[in-house]
Design a protein around this nucleic acid. Sequence first.
DNA 1: TCATACTGTAATAAAATATGTTACAAATTT
DNA 2: AAATTTGTAACATATTTTATTACAGTATGA
Lengths: 135, 135
Amino acid sequence: MISGKFAITIHILTLLHKFPNDYLSSEFIAGSMNLNPVLVRKEIANLKAHHVVESKEGKNGGTKLAVNASELTLKEIFEMTFETIGLGFAKNQPNPDCPVGKKINQNLEALYSEMNEKVGAQLQNISLEDFSNQF
Amino acid sequence: MISGKFAITIHILTLLHKFPNDYLSSEFIAGSMNLNPVLVRKEIANLKAHHVVESKEGKNGGTKLAVNASELTLKEIFEMTFETIGLGFAKNQPNPDCPVGKKINQNLEALYSEMNEKVGAQLQNISLEDFSNQF
DNA sequence: TCATACTGTAATAAAATATGTTACAAATTT
DNA sequence: AAATTTGTAACATATTTTATTACAGTATGA
């Protein structure tokens, strides 16, 4: 999963923030997103690995936030979803005998890296609470 | 084509800038990128539609830059490739009966739109000439 | 203690998207 | 006229995303 990972993750976290006292089931969350519950559980597994949520198995189980929403930034969420922004690379290895081909990916990476810094600075200023309170 | 479009386009433009007096064939360009010539021609068609390059059919034909590389910004190239940055959306329509589902895409769009402004400002400061001169 | 309702995870299937290939008409040069 | 190149359509393949099925393990509570 790449394309929707951040969007799905933040959707999950927003729901958890809206119901701070409940363990929400993957089925319930999936209902809000119109997504398969297994995919929700996979994203939750990632969030658990980052100690952002905790979940309880068994009947009446589910997931709830394990951190303070005012202290979790969108930048952290962004990084948890393994995302970097960028404008992509050509899929094939360019020709190393061409001066342009030889360095194109390196130069694109430098460019994208600057983009990430800019965007990272922006996302760092927004907490999950901020985002969630827009709803 | 989405993922590599910007990268491919800027690669093409860099090559054209490096050989300002020649009509480069799609075959030659494809050789530097290790890409199918038809795909190169497709991106060139897009560049032509934006009047950034001109090409000549027939024997010894090919493509050359039609604008001054110092006046073409990466932002314009970015826009020509129809790209916007962002962190994606969930693929399915979210549940409109859920307050979060109802507004999630709208709120993500607002967020991404700000990101685009930041990145756009950065890309506007870099010309094709600047980029090409790194090689 | 047993039925129920969850999570966790693997394996597989289906759908969507991206990339590659073939083919050939039209244009231009030599 | 022969050769070379663009332009483009049609089709094929590969890759990536998303969905589904299945089921073991865990907790709840009647």
